[in-house]
Computed example of a mutant assay.
Amino acid sequence: MSVATVSHVVNGSRRVSPEVKARVLKAIAALKYRRDGIARSLRMSQTRTIGLMISDISNPFFADFVRGIEDAVHARDPNYNLILCNSEEQEDKERRLFDVVLEKRVDGIVIVPAGGNRDYLNDLIGTGLPVVFADRFLPGLDADAVIVDNRDASFRLVTHLVRLGHRRIAALNAHLAATSIRERIEGYRDALEAAGIPFDERLVVTSRSRIEDAVVAGSEVLDLRPAPTAAFCTNNFMTLGLIRALSDRGLRCPEDMAVIGFDDFPWASTFRPRLTVVSQPSYALGQEAANLLFDRLLKKRTGPPVRLTLGTSLIIRESCGAHARVPA
């Protein structure tokens, strides 16, 4: 066979007769041939690789998010691969991982930013490399983004507590340099203001986004006087920490304190009491982020950056003292 014929079979670049194709494939199997991806990338100036930077792989939210990206990438082009990186919400680690994926000559990057590296990212975007922010974004940077309306979702969730009669509502705030967390606290404040309840900064307790730290923060909330009757948690680690703090004190939810949280997760409905939460479309967030990136890679989308905002669902369970489902 000529080199050109074998190339057409391997790459599917031109129709080859079934007989010739069968002979080439038989030789490939006998020789256990594998294409040299590095050489191909140098020739094509394209690696068919996408960098995916998430902020905390231990957070259940990102399991469906990554699956959504992977499924969307495979649907668009099964020859593309992902390089998954976990910044652990650390600016320095995120910067090091950027250097790693750029050395791999990725064709584009989807990032859940840790909050820093603004100048670095601005320079990176300026090179023309497609970059898509997901779940969060960095204001002022010209890149596509797909997010949810965190402020509105938190407003609706806290307003539900107000309608149940709560007036002293604490907030467990995850200490993250993320637009999403800041917007959730803004939604909490909006709900209080709309109900005519004065904002009390002493009711906002902040801790690192780790369950162990959230347990300590939960204990601080339980020590507040006058005692809050309800608490809003800005992510699932804060929710789990508060639930454990209540259990450690021998207190009951919602009898002693109503609890609501941001983010649903697979076992939220198996808790007793079952947790009232805002459910984010994490799988769809991943899909839309991948599609935005591919549209830039294939030049199907040009011009200024776009920001997609997806809806959320308010799932009412027993932890707030109510038993109904409120649609998005």
Rank of each mutant, 00 (worst) to 15 (best):
V66K: 06
G108F: 13
R67N: 10
E89F: 10
P78N: 07
A63H: 10
N79D: 15
I69T: 03
S87Q: 07
G68R: 12
P60M: 04
I83C: 07
N81C: 05
F61Y: 14
G68A: 11
K93H: 11
R96D: 14
R76C: 12
L84A: 02
R76K: 14
G108T: 12
C85D: 04
L102V: 02
N81Y: 09
N86P: 12
S87D: 06
A63F: 11
F61H: 13
D92S: 13
E91R: 13
E70R: 04
P60L: 02
L82R: 03
R96Y: 02
R96I: 03
D99T: 07
R67M: 03
C85V: 14
V73Q: 04
E70M: 01
G108I: 13
V100N: 07
E94M: 07
V106F: 03
P78S: 11
Y80S: 10
Q90F: 00
F62S: 00
R95I: 00
K104M: 09
L84I: 03
E103P: 01
H74F: 08
D107E: 05
H74E: 09
E91P: 00
N59H: 13
D64Q: 15
R76Q: 15
Y80A: 11
D64M: 12
D107M: 08
E70N: 07
P78I: 00
P60C: 02
G108W: 13
H74L: 10
L97W: 05
L102K: 04
D64A: 14
C85G: 08
N86K: 10
I69Q: 00
K93S: 07
D77S: 15
Y80V: 08
R67Q: 08
F61Q: 05
V106A: 00
L102N: 00
A72C: 03
L84P: 04
D92F: 07
D71A: 09
F62W: 07
H74K: 11
D71Q: 08
P78T: 02
L102W: 01
V66E: 08
A72M: 04
K104I: 00
A75I: 00
E91A: 10
K104Q: 15
F65K: 02
R95H: 08
G68Y: 13
A75D: 15
R96N: 10
N81F: 11
F61G: 03
R95D: 09
V66C: 03
V100L: 09
N59D: 10
N81I: 08
L102I: 01
N86L: 10
D107L: 09
E94W: 12
N59I: 05
P60F: 06
